[in-house]
Design a binder for these strands. Structure first.
Lengths: 215, 215
DNA sequence: GTCTATAGTCCGATAGAC
DNA sequence: GTCTATCGGACTATAGAC
């Protein structure tokens, strides 16, 4: 409340290289698409968040759909590259190799989806199964993660299911903003604690930091 | 392809009681909102699916938002009532009481989200955490399920987490329509099998039935 | 590299007839 | 109980200047 009109735009916008501007737009778009969904988001909201004019956003990406697809591709890429890195890290052999690796991957995942734009862009893709383009990317991305866990990480089926299931529950609880109602309902915190266990501090730290940033 | 224009409407629409018409609209809206999302769906699409005119949809529910909220409330209600029924069923005491009950609830959940409208309406709500009204309903609904599992079903924390996590993975795999690409990618079926295990036949049966219906 | 202006659509909601 | 007609607003994308 009482902000001075939108997200600081107008004024004689600075001229910056297209590549850099592209990144700004993608970052802004990730947030806006995440909050409002593909259909709910407008190119004007993205433009305002990036501090430029609406036609410029369209000019740079061709169409709103292409912009969304690029946002989604980036999110999937960060996820896949991040996981692959962790799997490739040297580990000592032992009985709990799977468990340790799962814990590391889980922690990395929580770190990643602390970025609400990434979290929600992924979830937007998940519920777009009916869309030929977006749906196909979502399916392909999910299967790539599956294969990585099976072939590169060497997880047995049960470990894969558990890992993916936990991830989807993380997604959901963060997406519905459960931490927002810790004050009103103690069960909210209890459920978060039972779900995230050790990782809860990380999540709450991020949430608090984000809140502070927006204040 | 080659369908005779839309979903059978126009013509001198039959006069039916408002209550019955309401149900028709809600059923149609569940499907349309599920496929396109709250923003992506139009009241005209709902109207066509229900076989009536667009203004009549608005007239009956006031606004598009109120219509969506009613769809969501119905979905949550079916879920909660269904679970409560199963929990209340008599069970023999034994060591695996939790496991058995979890299996029954899981089967009921899979049955419920075979209805794509219900599945996707719920997921739409999950990603609307930023929306004050929808977000609040989603949080409240999730917490009610949590309390039910904790207090009425007597699940320990780990069982709750596992149950909820599996449910969210079910949601995701069905939402992205993984069964659609069984032919193109054998890993899709493998992942579904590893996730749904015994329940896979149920899911695939439903998917096949739906496909047949739409053909 | 970036903007202003605006064309062209689509959509939710209202008015009012039957 | 249901429709047709339509208003007013919002949004994507294009045109063209600087």
């Amino acid at each position: 409340m009482n902000e001075t009109s939108g997200t600081a735009a107008a004024q004689p916008t600075e001229r910056i290289p297209a590549a850099e501007r592209r990144e700004q737009i993608l970052a802004a778009a990730s947030v806006v698409f995440g909050e409002r969904g593909y259909s709910g988001a407008t190119t004007d909201q993205v433009a305002k968040a990036a501090g430029i004019s609406q036609p410029y956003v369209v000019r740079m990406f061709g169409t709103k759909e292409k912009l969304f697809l690029e946002v989604l591709a980036r999110a999937l890429d960060r996820l896949i590259v991040g996981f692959r890195q962790i799997i490739a890290e040297p580990r000592e052999p032992g009985d709990d190799e799977v468990e340790l690796l799962a814990a590391r991957l889980g922690a990395a995942y929580v770190d990643l989806i602390e970025d609400r734009g990434i979290l929600l862009s992924l979830m937007q893709a998940f519920i777009s199964g009916h869309n030929p383009v977006v749906g196909a990317k979502a399916r392909a991305g999910f299967l790539e993660i599956y294969r990585m866990l099976r072939d590169e990480a060497g997880f047995p089926p049960d470990a894969i299911r558990e890992f993916l299931a936990d991830g989807m529950l993380f997604n959901t609880l963060l997406a519905i903003r459960l931490p927002d109602i810790f004050d009103e309902d103690p069960d909210a915190e209890e459920l978060m604690r039972c779900t995230f266990r050790g990782k809860l501090d990380v999540v709450l730290g991020a949430t608090a930091a984000e809140a502070a940033e927006h204040a």
